[in-house]
Design a protein around this nucleic acid. Structure first.
Lengths: 108, 108
DNA sequence: AACCTTTATCGTATTTTTACGATTAATAGA
DNA sequence: TCTATTAATCGTAAAAATACGATAAAGGTT
């Protein structure tokens, strides 16, 4: 993101931005959509689905995990990634709040 | 964003990611919130409100404009920036669709 | 134990983002 | 016209994001 003056903004503003950042790459959108529609959620299957190297997919998974959107469970040698529905609900409400706030547009 | 393999993903995935990227900085969230609650929407007032240099704010405004979230109208020597409610509605529906899609989580 | 499979991490190159000061452009007013 | 105000753009430095190959780690299997 380059240098960002995080401390100069409110907690909420930073939180919304962090959530948005997690969604700010097509590969991560693709991962979420794949996890939603697929019964399998093994990391290897995600790697096969995406046009990216294994290490790159792993990085994207890490970012989604960092905001809590997905969680990984170790299953033998593999890892099963799942969407965290609680985190999803939180994101939904955070964005919903922002959108309805912005909708009360009084200027112009 | 670094190098991104845009062409390898669907149009929708890229579109969602682009919208999210526009929201992926606290300064841009602050701008939207300011425009929502303030009667004034003159660029200079936004610059005063934010802890950033004028040129930096101008860059953030440009990014918000690039996804259509705001539009600028020249008023004499100043520019009045306003939220585009139509674009906002589109973003709302795009994110809403994604969230409800992801909510149908079948795995795990 | 030796080996294979699977995933995370490391190192690194490239590109993009963020930020600022300086300059330019455009409009209003004296 | 000259000047002041306002905002966009340019140039640039620093930091973060993206991507990949190589390596490490962790768990099964033979």
């Amino acid at each position: 993101m380059g240098l960002t003056k995080t401390k100069e903004f409110t907690k909420t503003q930073n939180e919304i931005a962090a959530m948005a950042k997690a969604l700010a790459h097509p590969a991560r959108i693709a991962i979420l959509q794949f996890l939603a529609k697929q019964k399998s959620c093994v990391c290897g299957d995600i790697v096969e689905e995406l046009p990216l190297a294994q290490s790159t997919v792993s990085q994207h998974l890490k970012e989604l995990k960092s905001v809590g959107l997905i969680k990984g469970e170790i299953e033998g040698p593999a890892v099963c990634y799942c969407i965290d529905l609680k985190a999803l609900a939180k994101i939904k409400s955070i964005f919903g709040e922002l959108f309805s706030e912005v909708e009360q547009n009084t200027c112009c």
